[in-house]
Design a protein around this nucleic acid. Structure first.
Lengths: 399, 399
DNA sequence: GCAACTAACTTCGATTCTGAACTAAGTTTG
DNA sequence: CAAACTTAGTTCAGAATCGAAGTTAGTTGC
C-alpha cells in the first residue's frame, strides 16, 4: 500500500460482536471519553465535521450499543443539547499506579470513571518478575465478569522515565531489574488485551486534565496543562492540545534534575549533584528534618506535622515550595500553559501550594501569568489511576 | 451556522481569477510550500489521504496554474516521484525583519525563496509612525510589477513580545511607542493584502526549520525544533510538529529573563535583576569588554575580534556560551526537541557554539540528547526574512 | 539481462460526508 | 407574553473522497 487507509477501520472487540466503525466514529468515542465534547453539536464543533455527519455517526454508535443519550445539558440561549455518554457496561478498563513502595489498582468503566480500587505496599526493587504478577492478581480480583464484552484494556503508570514506543522503563534510578523490561508487552500477554504504560507524571497530568475537562465547560478552551507531581520525588507531565506531550525521545517533562544553586553539591539519586530534587522534594524535606531531630517516615508524616502546626516543618515546606517555584517559573515562562496543577503528596499542603504560586507570579513574565490558573490537583491521589485508565481508554477507542 | 464549513472554501486572490479550492487543496499547497512534501506520493503519506484523491487535487491545482511539475526526484527502489512546486510567478510575498537598529526587507516567490533583499539602519525608538512607512517604502521598491497576480501577502518580524492574535507588540522594553500599536492591521491596510507579524525568534525558528525540511529528507521526521537566537539580545522560538508553538498567551519561548546565579544582581533591560541576558547576550559581552578597556560597538565587532584571535574576547564568548548552555539545558530537558539550532550573530562563532553544545551534552539527561542535533543556523542572517515570508505564505495558502 | 520486487501514479465504481433548508426547543427583549 | 433571536439536531440530494485494481517506471538479485 503506499498509504495508511484512514477509512472503514474495524474496532477490534474482545466480545462476540464485530462492528465496523469509520475513523470519525472512533474520534467521536475519544472525544466523549475524554470529556472534550458531550453532545452532537459539541462534537461537530470540536471535530470540525458537519452536524449532519455527526447525526449519522452518533446513530450508528447508538445502534451498536457503544454510546447512549444521558439527559440534556443546560441551554445557552437556545435549545438545550442532548448529552451523550459511553455506555458504561460495554466493557471495562483496568488501571494500575505503581510507585516505589505502593501498588494501587482500579477498575474503570468506559466513561473513564473509577469504580473500585485497592492499594497495597510493595518494594519496587523486588523487580518486575515479582511485582507485575502481584499487580495482575490484584487487577484480576477487581474484574467484573458480569460485564460483557469484558476487559478492553490495561493501563499502568510507572515511577521512572518511560520509553513509550518500547513500553518499558529506560535506565530508572533505584529500580533494580526494570531497565528495558517490556512491561507493556507483559501486560498485553498476561491479559490478552491492549495495554499501555507511561511515566507517572504523564499519567497524572492526563488524569487531572480529563477531570477538569468534565468539571467545567470553561476549561474546554484550556488545552495546555502543566502538571507538577511533588511527592517523595519530583516529576512533571505536559499536556499540549489535550494530549500528552512526550517530545522526541519520550524524555519531555524532566525537571527534577535541574542543577540549582540552593542545592549546593548535595548528591542526588540520579548520580549528579545539586539537583532540584535534593532540595524541593519530599525526600529532601525528610532528610533535612531528620538532621534537626524531627522524625518523619514519609510524605504523609510531613502532611500530618504541617496540619498539626509544626513550625519547623511548615517553614521547611514553604522553602521547598519557593525553590520549586523558582525553577518551575523557567518552564512556565517557556511553555506558557493555561493551567498549572500541583499534584503529589505535598500538594495537599496549602503553605506549599501558596509558596509555589506566589513564586510563580513573582518570577514569571506578566504575559505568561496573565490568564493562568495555578491550583492544587482536583484528582488528588487518584490522578495516576484516572490517567492510566484514560490513556488506555483513548488507545482502545482509537484502535 | 453552528459549525465552520471545512469544505469548498474559496481562496481569495488579489488577481483577476477566482479559483474554488477545497480544504485539502490548501493543505496541499501548504505542504509543498513548507517543504514537508514534494511529490504526489509524499502528499498522500503526509496528509493521510488516498493517492487517488491527491491525483485529482493536484490536477486541479495544476490546471489553475498554482503548482507545476519540476522534474523527478531520486528513486528509492521503485519508480521515481514526479516533483511538484508552487508556480513561482503566481505571485510574490514581501517580508521585513525589524531590529532595534536595522530594517531588512525582501521579496520571496511562492516557493518561499528569497529573491532580493535590502537593509538599512534605523532607530526603533522613532516609533511605528516613522519606522513603518520607511519599511513600506523599501518593500514597495522591491515589488515586481511584472508578476501577475502580484502581491499575495506581507510578513514582518518584530524584536519583542508579540500578541499574535492582536498583531501587535505587548509591552516591549526599550521600544517607545510600539506597545499595542497594531502593526499587522497597519500593514494589511497599507498594502491591501493579508499581513502577519510575529516575534523575531519565532520567525527565525520557522525560517530555519523550513530550510532544513528542504535540505535533507532525513529531517522530515524531525518536526520539533528549538531555535535560540543569540545576538545583542537573547530569544527563543519553538517549532512543535512543524508549526510555531505560541502557548496560551503568545509568550512561549521566553528564556532571556531567567534569573541565574552567575548574573548576580546586574540590572536588566526588563526591569528585573540577574537575568540570563545580563550575562550571556551580545550586549553583556560588549559591556564586560568595555570594563576592561576593549572596545566593541556591536556583535559584529565581537565576531571580528574572535576571528582575529583576541584571547580576552574569545574567553568571554566561551563563558557566555557555557552559561547559556546551562540554562538552555533546563528547557532542552523539558521540551526534548529533535533539533536545537543556534542563530543570531554570536552563532557565527565556533567557540560559542562549541561551548553551548558541550554544556548541553553535560547538563542534559542522556535520554534528551540521545538523537539530538545541535548546530549553528543554516539560514544565518536570512532566518528572520525567510521565516516571515514562510509564515505569510502558509497563512496565504491556508486562507 | 531478465525475473521478482518496490514505489509512484491513475482510473473508476462505490461510499461517505457535506451544505442548505428544515424542524425543534430553548432564551431574550420590548 | 409574543416576536425575534439562538442554539440543537435532522433530512436528503449531490459532491468529494475512497479502495481496489491496474499502469508505469524504476531497483535488486541471481
Amino acid at each position: 500500500m503506499g498509504y495508511k487507509p484512514s477509512y472503514a477501520k474495524t474496532v477490534k472487540r474482545t466480545g462476540p460482536r464485530d462492528i465496523a466503525l469509520t475513523e470519525y466514529s472512533s474520534s467521536i468515542l475519544s472525544m466523549i471519553a475524554s470529556g472534550r465534547a458531550n453532545s452532537r453539536a459539541d462534537l461537530a464543533r470540536t471535530l470540525n465535521l458537519a452536524p449532519s455527519t455527526i447525526t449519522i455517526k452518533v446513530n450508528e454508535l447508538m445502534e451498536a450499543g457503544l454510546i447512549s443519550e444521558s439527559g440534556s445539558g443546560s441551554a445557552t440561549g437556545g435549545r438545550r443539547p442532548t448529552l451523550l455518554e459511553l455506555v458504561p457496561d460495554a466493557g471495562f478498563i483496568l488501571a494500575a499506579d505503581l510507585g516505589a513502595h505502593h501498588l494501587w489498582v482500579g477498575r474503570l468503566n468506559l466513561s473513564g470513571n473509577l469504580l473500585v480500587s485497592e492499594i497495597r505496599t510493595i518494594d519496587i526493587n523486588d523487580g518486575p518478575e515479582v511485582v507485575l504478577p502481584q499487580a495482575a492478581a490484584m487487577m484480576r480480583a477487581l474484574s467484573d465478569p458480569a460485564v460483557d464484552p469484558p476487559l478492553r484494556g490495561v493501563g499502568m503508570s510507572l515511577p521512572g522515565p518511560v520509553n513509550f514506543a518500547l513500553g518499558a522503563l529506560d535506565s530508572p534510578s533505584r529500580m533494580r531489574g526494570w531497565h528495558e523490561f517490556k512491561v507493556r508487552n507483559w501486560l498485553a500477554e498476561e491479559f490478552g488485551t491492549l495495554a499501555v504504560v507511561d511515566n507517572d507524571a504523564n499519567m497524572m497530568a492526563l488524569g487531572e486534565h480529563t477531570l477538569r475537562q468534565r468539571e467545567s465547560p470553561d476549561s474546554k478552551v484550556r488545552q495546555n496543562t502543566l502538571f507538577l507531581k511533588a511527592g517523595a520525588a519530583i516529576g512533571c507531565g505536559l499536556i499540549i492540545d489535550g494530549q500528552v506531550y512526550r517530545g522526541a525521545t519520550g524524555a519531555a517533562g524532566d525537571i527534577a534534575h535541574v542543577q540549582i544553586p540552593a542545592a549546593g553539591d548535595a548528591p542526588c539519586s540520579c548520580g549528579n549533584r545539586g539537583c532540584l530534587e535534593t532540595v524541593a522534594s519530599g525526600s529532601a524535606i525528610i532528610r533535612d528534618l531528620a538532621a534537626v531531630g524531627i522524625d518523619a517516615a514519609d510524605v504523609n508524616d510531613i502532611v500530618l506535622q504541617v496540619n498539626n502546626g509544626d513550625p519547623h516543618t511548615t517553614t521547611r515546606v514553604r522553602t521547598a515550595g519557593r525553590i520549586l517555584g523558582q525553577t518551575l517559573s523557567i518552564v512556565v515562562n517557556f511553555v506558557n500553559p493555561d493551567v498549572v496543577v500541583l499534584g503529589g503528596g505535598l500538594s495537599q499542603l496549602e503553605p506549599y501550594v501558596a509558596a509555589v504560586r506566589s513564586q510563580l507570579y513573582e518570577s514569571c513574565h506578566p504575559l505568561a501569568t496573565k490568564n493562568i490558573v495555578i491550583e492544587a490537583s482536583l484528582a488528588g491521589s487518584q490522578a495516576g489511576l484516572l490517567g492510566a485508565g484514560q490513556l488506555c481508554l483513548r488507545t482502545v477507542l482509537a484502535s
